[in-house]
């Protein structure tokens, strides 16, 4: 049995521990916001936070995250009534086209801003390099990230903690 914490809730999983986290999230936990695009860490559609760091869940075996805290797109917002500033900016800039890549884009961007609140263009290029958008919304993604740069971010680790306290 593998134990992980996903969006603040502890999960005990009877799954082959070599299974990539992506499929555990989507199939066992029905968290379908995290997407499959390539299966080989090339596209970023499956990006989640593992202890606050952006990881490609399609190549991360469940065993590698045992005991760790995972945040998915469903847990990015601080609570049910509020969006993460990036989610808000994504709507303001009308970023998504098909939207399929956007969970991954948002998770990569959130991890960037949590450690680097005012990234340069070059920082953005590096942090977002692993996320493909076949609809080509890169200018809007860049604009949206910059529009919240410097704005108070929800540190994923802090959000996690708050949630755990709430959940008792």
């Amino acid at each position: 049995m593998t134990v992980i914490t996903v969006n603040g809730t502890e999960q005990k999983l009877q799954v082959d521990p070599s299974t990539p986290l992506l499929w555990v999230l989507r199939e066992q936990l029905a968290l379908t916001g995290t997407k499959f695009g390539c299966g080989m860490a090339q596209c970023g559609a499956c990006t989640v936070h593992v202890d606050g760091t952006a990881m490609r869940s399609c190549v991360t075996p469940l065993s590698a995250v045992s005991g760790q805290k995972i945040t998915t797109i469903e847990g990015l917002a601080p609570n049910n009534n509020e969006l993460h500033p990036l989610q808000q900016a994504w709507i303001e800039e009308q970023v998504p086209q098909c939207g399929y890549c956007q969970s991954g884009q948002l998770m990569s961007a959130a991890a960037l801003l949590a450690t680097n609140p005012s990234p340069s263009d070059a920082d953005i290029n590096i942090a977002m390099a692993g996320n493909i958008c076949r609809c080509g919304m890169y200018s809007r993604i860049r604009r949206a990230i910059k529009s919240v740069a410097g704005v108070q971010q929800f540190d994923p680790a802090v959000t996690e903690l708050a949630r755990e306290i709430n959940n008792g």
Binding site: L31, Q94, P96, G99, S103
Partner: peptide, 19 residues
Amino acid sequence: VERHDLPSKVDGTAIFALD
């Protein structure tokens, strides 16, 4: 005007066939 479908595309709730 803002697109109607975008809120569900930033919080992971939009249902694609794979979901």
